[in-house]
Design a protein around this nucleic acid. Structure first.
Length: 851
DNA sequence: GGGGTTAAGATTTTT
DNA sequence: TCTTAACCCC
């Protein structure tokens, strides 16, 4: 099967050779001989040879399984080895020291991948093979880049400023593009659109073409365009079939128009950052040659996550210089759905001629049971490069991987909560525990449960700081001031807060702007000089525009943080939230303050805007001891002593949609996700599945995930829960034979009756009698099913404290979920509150505060 | 232009 | 079931 995509060989024509001067003064390595070998040549075996005279570079004797000669040779040299090589195992050491030629490091979970990467950089620097500015080190996330910087700083004693080219694909591309923007039709000050801006722009274009935006949603087109950009396809290059697939053949036209609009706006989206650089490299060989010369060593982290565009990008650079080291693990490729191409890592040695493949298989993280379970699970995948992880590490307790069943998600949350409290009682820190879910809706039952238990938790991932509405609005104001051509920002806030500038006014502005191909702000200014807009709206518009001008003039004299405050105050934006009585408003005001505080770290407002568009996330303070709750995806790269893995049910995990949309490939990716989940655990991995789950409000009975059957029996124990109310009913289910039979499927004859509508009605009726306490809200309307009484009974008893409430009737209070309200009734510590937004509710007093 | 009502959609997520 | 966004009417 030779290259079904046909993309691996289509860039050969841009190859450039023969250069003497690197064009970047001051970048020459201190050793005159270093970096020379192999430059400008792609396919030859000599990169593997130790042509570099540096003392610590060792010829790789074997490609993998280097426990033999290489290991002994390296061990023999231990005494001369520099400090930073101490403690590396032979394979790690080989990965660090094989500097020249293409190297693929297949780093299994927990095998010290990051250590290898950072040590390798340290080694390059220590041997004088290259200057910091001649190393290209690419990561996927800002977090990974930051961590790598920190670790290198520890190696080389602080100064990583010189590592100018350590960053994400995107940030490196921005850096390149700012220098050569004109060559791809941009101006250097171009702005970067986020997904929200992008979507609004697409919507405008679809509307302008008169297409039915219900049938052909902007979202669908965005993801289609995304897949084109992931493959580095320009409008001209997209396959005819795909071009036709959207809106009966409008695909290409819309894509062209979108790109056209972007260039008018002097903007690009995330995909463009890579695409433009690839175009730049292809059309300007001299520029490419500059970078090929500059980057003497290239390192790519998480190579299994690269998409085709990223591959091509790297390939172009590597044509000038084969010193590429990619690190990754095909078994941890879990981002196929957003364009990652596992093929990149599977075909590395084919694409980069003469590549050395090094396998890191010694695991330093997990116990042998956990490792065995994970390995056996992943062995069910086809098309892997294959690794055999092993470990010497065994915990004194050496727990088996546990599998437990429960009735539904609430019982799941209850029993996991119980286990967490038990572990905590035995002196385990909450920080060392995590709950990893497949989909974020699963988090809710845990949050609810932990709130009632008073158990500290933190949700990782979730809505990000810069994606919050108030932050985006504030940023839009700043953008209008700093980048007067930023139409999307202008549209966002012309009428926020409400100024009486509605669709009618905006439409006039749009028409003029389109006709004259000018930015909206300019068009608006022009319209204000005429009588076209009704006086009321005209004055409002004039006001806003005058404010922009005024702020722009003030910029010089004041610090950008002061300016930010002035802008938000004078625009009436902060006032808008101060007057808002909803529960979120105070938090939003806090976020705005936080936004201004975080601007202090930047020199100017423009610098801050650039940072935000590339770094959508914000460092969160670690803070106190808490259980982490996150998705399996966001858990990649992390590790915990104890990992809870709930929701291992068919349809949820593996997720039905992954199976429907991607078939076997989808299933395998789900399995890799399971593998990632299990391998996050150092000492304890605890898997759960529920017999019933509510999905979109509908109760559905579920069967255990096929992944459970793919775990090795010798390393797994089935936990029977004393308080089990159903679900896995006991030993009976084990060892059933026959087609498709699962040893986890409950065989108790009454099992099915639990999921009948009648039984569920009975549960509802029972629930109606109990006061259910959840997040301070009494949902006693019978919508909630009750589990074992004992637990809730205790809880309820606790909630109805005898002590009289310290609140009194008529007081104004604030509730985290319902906002502001007045107390209209009191029974013990139970308050009846008339909320301004949410209406009348009964709430426990400890959940509200005076206001 | 604001407010109420209704319909659709509801994995995973980074940049 | 619940949230969000669009739509319609005042």
């Amino acid at each position: 099967m030779a290259d079904p995509n046909g993309y691996h060989d289509d860039i050969g024509d841009t190859f450039v050779e023969g250069f003497d001067d690197d064009g970047f003064p001051g970048d020459r390595p201190s050793r005159p001989d270093a970096g020379k070998p192999g430059a400008g040549e792609v396919s030859s075996d000599e990169h593997v040879a130790p042509s570099n005279a540096a003392a610590h570079v060792l010829a790789p004797v074997v490609a993998s399984g280097g426990g033999g000669i290489a290991a002994r040779a390296m061990a023999a040299r231990q005494s001369h080895a520099p400090d930073y090589l101490e403690g590396l195992n032979p394979e790690q050491r080989q990965a660090v020291e094989t500097l020249n030629g293409p190297v693929l490091v297949l780093a299994g979970a927990g095998t010290g991948k990051t250590r290898v990467l950072t040590t390798r950089i340290a080694h390059i620097l220590a041997t004088g093979s290259a200057q910091p500015s001649q190393i290209l080190a690419v990561t996927f996330t800002n977090k990974a880049a930051r961590e790598m910087k920190e670790r290198i700083a520890r190696f080389i004693g602080g100064n990583v400023e010189g590592m100018a080219w350590l960053g994400t694909f995107h940030s490196i591309c921005v850096k390149i593009l700012r220098r050569h923007a004109e060559l791809v039709g941009l101006k250097s000050g171009f702005s970067i659109l986020d997904t929200d801006d992008q979507l609004r722009l697409i919507k405008q274009i679809i509307r302008a073409e008169g297409l039915d935006e219900k049938r052909w949603t902007p979202k669908a087109f965005a993801s289609m365009m995304d897949s084109w950009k992931n493959r580095a396809l320009t409008p001209k290059e997209i396959p005819e079939g795909e071009a036709r697939a959207f809106a009966n053949g409008w695909g290409r036209k819309l894509y062209e128009e979108y790109q056209d609009r972007l260039s008018i706006l002097n903007a690009c989206d995330f995909g463009d950052l890579l695409l433009h650089v690839i175009t730049l490299f292809k059309t300007h060989p001299d520029v490419l040659a500059d970078y090929q010369r500059r980057f003497r060593y290239m390192l790519v982290d998480e190579y299994q996550d690269t998409n085709i565009a990223q591959y091509l990008w790297l390939r172009l650079l590597a044509q000038g210089n084969p010193n590429v080291c990619c690190v990754g693990d095909d078994d941890q490729s879990i981002y196929g759905w957003r364009g990652a191409e596992v093929d990149n890592i599977l075909r590395f040695d084919h694409d980069f001629k003469g590549a050395v493949v090094i396998r890191l298989e010694r695991n330093y993280r997990s116990t042998s049971h956990i490792l065995a379970a994970a390995s056996h699970l992943i062995s069910h995948n086809q098309g892997r490069l294959g690794k055999t992880l092993f470990t010497d590490f065994d915990d004194p307790e050496n727990d088996l991987v546990s599998v437990a069943s429960c009735w539904d998600s609430e019982e799941e949350a209850r029993s996991i909560g119980d286990e967490i409290e038990a572990l905590q009682g035995n002196g385990h820190a909450l920080n060392d525990m995590a709950i990893l879910v497949r989909a974020s809706f699963q988090m809710r039952s845990f949050e609810d449960r932990f709130v009632t238990l008073g158990l500290n938790y933190r949700v990782i991932g979730g809505p990000r700081f810069y994606e919050r509405m108030e932050i985006r609005d504030a940023m839009a104001y700043f953008r209008c001031v700093v980048q007067p051509a930023d139409d999307l920002a202008f549209e966002r806030i012309v009428n926020t807060p409400k100024r009486g500038l509605g669709d009618a006014t905006l439409k006039l502005v749009h028409e003029l702007a389109r006709a004259e191909r000018m930015p909206l702000i300019q068009a608006a200014n022009q319209l204000c000089q005429t009588e076209e807009i009704r006086p009321k709206a005209r004055n409002a518009l004039k006001d806003v525009l005058a404010s922009f001008d005024r702020w722009r003039q003030q910029m010089d004299g004041k610090s950008h943080t002061d300016m930010a405050e002035i802008i938000l105050d004078e625009s009436g934006y902060t006032e808008m939230w101060r007057l808002d009585r909803s529960a979120e408003a105070p938090g939003r005001l806090d976020n705005l303050k936080e936004l201004i505080r975080s601007m202090e770290d930047f020199e100017s407002m423009a610098g801050f805007l650039e940072h935000v568009s590339l770094v959508m996330d914000k460092d969160k303070a670690e803070g106190h001891d808490a259980v982490s709750i996150m998705t399996l995806h966001s858990a990649k790269g992390l590790e915990f002593d104890t990992v809870f893995l709930p929701g291992w049910e068919e349809g949820l995990f593996p997720h039905q949609r992954a199976l429907d949309e991607s078939g076997r490939a989808g299933l395998e990716e789900e399995r890799r996700l399971a593998y990632v989940g299990v391998t996050r655990a150092k000492k304890r991995a605890k898997i759960w599945f529920a017999s019933n789950r509510r999905i979109h409000g509908q109760w559905q009975s579920s069967i255990p995930s096929r992944f459970l059957d793919e775990l090795p029996e010798d390393h797994v124990e089935i936990v029977e829960q004393s308080s089990n109310y159903g679900g896995y009913g006991g030993g009976g289910g084990y060892g059933r034979s026959g087609m498709g039979a699962s040893r986890f499927v409950n065989q108790e004859p009454f099992q099915n009756s639990y999921s009948t509508p009648g039984w569920q009605r009975a549960q509802k009726a029972k629930a109606a009698q109990d006061a259910v306490f959840e997040r301070g809200d009494f949902r006693a309307q019978g919508t909630k099913r009750q589990g074992p009484k004992t637990i809730e009974g205790e809880l309820v008893a606790k909630s109805f404290s005898e002590a009289a409430s310290e609140f009194s009737k008529g007081e104004r209070v604030f509730h985290i979920k319902f906002g502001y309200g007045a107390i209209v009734g009191i029974e013990g510590n139970k308050l009846t509150i008339d909320f301004e937004k949410a209406g009348q509710k009964k709430v426990i007093d400890s959940f509200v505060e005076r206001h």
